[in-house]
Amino acid sequence: MSQISGQELNRNRVVDWALMVYIVLAYAFVFAPIAASFVFSFNSDRFPSIPLGDFSLEWYRAVAADPLVWQGLTNTLVIGVVVGVVSTALGFGAAYTDYRYKFMGKQVYLALALLPPTIPVIILGLAMLAYLSRIDLSGRAISVIISHVVVCAPFAMAIIRLRLSQMDPALEPAAWNLGASEWATMRHVIIPFTKPAIFGALFITMAVSFDEFAVAWFVSGLNETLPVKVLGFLQGQVSPRINAIGTFVFVTSMTLVILAQILLSGRTAAPRSSTVDKE
């Protein structure tokens, strides 16, 4: 018996080793394009390849000297912030509705609240373009904001709903019993409890809007966002400027995501939530 288990252990080691190698290869595949974009953004060659050319900041300089890039960046930032705030507000409302109420047609309500990200962006882009130009809202920053909120609100809702499910369901009725109105309970109990998720949702939806290019490409008209600008670079003569923009956007998005992560991991969480986590 011990001999068999010894053999199994041996075989185990080979299999484990092979699987570890596989994991490393898989992550190499996932991170190769990200790393290459970072490395080549500092490389002088116009047609990037190996061996590497000289270290150079010329692509960053070229990007910084392009007024259209600055305009795109401004658009992206303004749109991202508005989308983040609106999506989080709408998402919060939907999450709270799902948490607290039962009503007829709730399934439909939830489907509306969660479905939009599963529709291919190209179809959503076309539908938005056709519809918004019909009601005279296309080709402006507001068009991108409207469309991005449709896609982003479900993410905000999911994040905040998750946090609400960690809350003791007796907490809210307890506040009512102590004489607090529904509004006061919302302000002093629910919102403080969900605060980390609210900020998490804010940053995540901002990051999603920051990277979205397809719907924005359809509806933005001349108010191009930065990702639409990148799409333009891809369509035109290929240029390592994409790498410079990509690296900048990556750093910005990651900052938002890590902020969200720190908030969501719940350093500010009430002790109650940690007991819920353990269950």
Partner: peptide, 19 residues
């Protein structure tokens, strides 16, 4: 680590594959 790619631009990664 697997979540990180969601917050990088897909366009930039595709351009990177061209390289």
């Amino acid at each position: 680590l697997m979540v990180i790619p969601f917050f990088t631009s897909y366009l930039v990664r595709v351009y990177s594959w061209q390289i």
